[in-house]
Design a protein around this nucleic acid. Structure first.
Lengths: 258, 258
DNA sequence: AGTGGATAACTGGTCAGACCATACGACCGG
DNA sequence: CCGGTCGTATGGTCTGACCAGTTATCCACT
């Protein structure tokens, strides 16, 4: 896979519009308000300012912020919906959809239903992807993102005190790290992986027991990961994430075989 | 992301259609008025009642005939416009377009079209995924797989002698390495990535010039990658693949900025 | 303390009516 | 036959309103 970046051989490609001398004038491109709005929204989603699962501002808010009417906003959002970038529901807001889902998820779901060996493969894939994420996060993250990650870590610590575990917090912690890579494609990709793991665990109706001492260990892992990112140390961050996930995998294997 | 292996808490997760036994009922499908209108219009167009080039009734007429408001009709027509079935112009009516001339676009395509930054992100993702693949391949591959990889390498060498480059061979070389990871999920994943990269290059109609010396360099990279895998040296294989892909990316960037 | 139901605020879906800008076609003067 | 003028039809946008579904909060009940 090198040549796809080097399509010099693709003579089949039509060389952009020729500008023959009698056709000097380009057709006037009229852009409707709704299209301008749609482009703005596309940009912020594509740039990752609104991540997958995030809720867009309400139509009224958007209209006010952009100084236009609600119908224009509605039409714009509908365009995005047609493109599959957002999903709206009556009463709820529009949420950013995972663009990779259609391409990634459905073909793989079939495999997951086969046997639980696939779950291990999936976690293996996730392990190296998140390790890379930790590295890139340590390398690229902003101060605001560090704060966001810290917030979720602190929340996990509070939960631990109460002997509580909340899936969403753990999820957000890792998602925030993925977002700090500043690679939108990757964020959508890893979200697909998460969904697949969630899906596979569900269809196998699996319940994993987490011993208290394991929980403490996992919390320590998270602390370490955060510290490495905070210190902007890519190598250490990657290593810490690897350690964490391999531990999780080993716990899972231990339970799985029993 | 630890607790997803512990899905006791994951009720919060919206696992799209889960087939747990207690959820027997399908979600109620709400169809908006605009969708009903759009479906009616789609039907009359596909039935040939309105042929290509025909002008649709005006929005006001449609609204009156269907007993609904104009905004609903507008939204419906806009959906058709997104699908490429009709084209509207300010002051003129909407006219039926030829559907066959353009295929339907997947959500990811709209994403990649946004700007060139996305393509870079994609190659970045690919780079680290393939590096991992090389490592795992060196670690897990069988003798048969080594032979398969060798075959494609030799084919590339023959092509190089003739001053020829074939995309498919390069593709197969990398695919074979991915397969040698013995991780089915990963093979599917990277296959999707390839398709996306392939597509993104297409839509940008990019022509990248590859100097002969670059081609030789790339061939050398492939030789090195193969040798590392053959020697079952994971670290070296990963490094070689990284070197290779970073070179490709830098070439791409070089061209991209010009 | 945890569960379930009612309430209120918010948000998307739809509607009606109005105004502007453009396209189309008829008409008119050359 | 030609170019310009002008009225009308039509799409684009706005305003304001109401309905219907969602969400969060609170409260009573067990």
């Amino acid at each position: 896979m090198t040549a796809e970046l080097v399509p010099g051989y693709s003579q089949a490609m039509n060389g952009n519009q020729d500008q023959s001398p009698d056709v000097v004038f380009r057709p006037i491109r009229m852009e409707r308000v709704s299209e301008k709005v749609a482009n703005q929204l596309k940009k912020v989603i594509s740039d990752g300012i609104f991540k997958v699962g995030d809720r867009l501002p309400s139509e009224r808010e958007l209209a006010e912020q952009m100084g236009i009417s609600r119908p224009s906003v509605r039409e714009a959002i509908q365009q995005l919906e047609m493109l599959g970038m957002v999903e709206t529901s009556h009463g709820g807001r529009s949420v950013v959809k995972n663009i990779a889902e259609q391409e990634i998820r459905s073909p793989i779901e079939a495999f997951l239903e086969e046997d639980r060996q696939r779950v291990l493969e999936l976690t293996e894939v996730r392990a190296f992807m998140e390790s890379w994420a930790a590295r890139m996060a340590a390398q690229n993250c902003t101060e605001a993102e560090v704060q966001a990650i810290r917030r979720y870590l602190e929340e996990m610590e509070r939960d631990f005190e109460r002997g509580q575990i909340r899936f969403e917090v753990d999820f957000k912690f890792h998602t925030e790290i993925a977002a700090a890579t500043h690679n939108t494609i990757f964020v959508h990709l890893i979200d697909s992986i998460y969904q697949l793991i969630n899906y596979s665990v569900k269809i196998h109706r699996e319940q994993v027991f987490v011993a208290p001492e394991s929980q403490e260990k996992i919390l320590d892992h998270h602390r370490k990961i955060f510290r490495c990112i905070e210190d902007r140390d890519p190598d250490a961050a990657e290593a810490a994430m690897k350690e964490h996930l391999f531990f999780v995998v080993s716990e899972f294997k231990k339970w799985s075989s029993s």
